[in-house]
Simulated assay, not measured.
Amino acid sequence: MAIYITEECINCGACEPECPNTAIYEGGVPWTWGGGTSLDEVELEDGTSVPADEDQEPVSDEFYYIVPAKCTECTGFHEEPQCAAVCPVDCCVPDPDYEETQEELEQKKEWLHQEA
């Protein structure tokens, strides 16, 4: 499952540079599919395509957030989610709304970091 940042976040930013998928953003900052990935264009669930560098709406305006669709729990990079490992207040926790198997996380990692 993806990791999410709870409201206990103190906005220290320790988690952001640790994410190998660039799935963590400061509150209020738009995110992109392309940041930290090899994606050029992304087909959304509704069938439309967007350029990977197109800004997307922030998930949170108040505190750091993780984009669930880009979170792989550091699968293929580290033994454990690095955001949780460095968080001083333990607010990076599994997101029950985005449960994924290890195989699904591995497939997502491969999709995000496709070789050209």
Rank of each mutant, 00 (worst) to 15 (best):
P96W: 09
E16Q: 09
P17E: 07
I10F: 08
F77Q: 02
V59L: 14
T22M: 08
P88K: 05
E79C: 10
W33D: 03
D95H: 02
Y25G: 00
E80L: 06
C19D: 12
E41A: 04
N21G: 14
P94K: 05
E43T: 15
E43G: 04
W33A: 06
P94G: 07
F63M: 01
V29R: 11
P20A: 05
H78Q: 12
P96S: 13
G47R: 09
T75H: 10
D90M: 05
I24L: 08
G35P: 01
L44C: 08
H78V: 00
C91R: 03
E62V: 10
E41H: 01
T48F: 06
G36N: 04
A69P: 01
P17D: 06
A52N: 02
C9E: 04
A85H: 05
F77T: 06
V67S: 02
W31P: 05
C87S: 03
D90S: 14
A52S: 12
W33F: 14
P68R: 01
C74P: 08
E57F: 03
T32R: 11
E57L: 12
C12R: 11
T75L: 01
D40N: 11
T22H: 12
D46L: 13
A84H: 11
G34Q: 07
D90A: 14
V89W: 00
A23K: 06
N11W: 13
Q56K: 08
D55I: 04
G28S: 07
T75G: 01
S38E: 11
D97V: 02
V42C: 04
V93Y: 08
E80D: 13
P68Y: 00
A84F: 09
V89T: 14
D40P: 00
G13Y: 09
E73W: 08
E54T: 15
E45N: 14
E79L: 13
D61V: 08
T37L: 06
P20L: 05
V89M: 03
E18K: 14
C9T: 03
E45W: 15
D97G: 05
F77M: 00
Y65Q: 07
N11E: 14
I10P: 11
Y25F: 15
E57Y: 07
S38Y: 09
A69S: 14
E79F: 11
C91F: 05
T37G: 01
C15P: 12
A52G: 01
W33Y: 14
Q82E: 15
H78I: 02
C74E: 08
Y65H: 00
D61K: 10
H78D: 14
S49M: 15
F63A: 11
A23D: 04
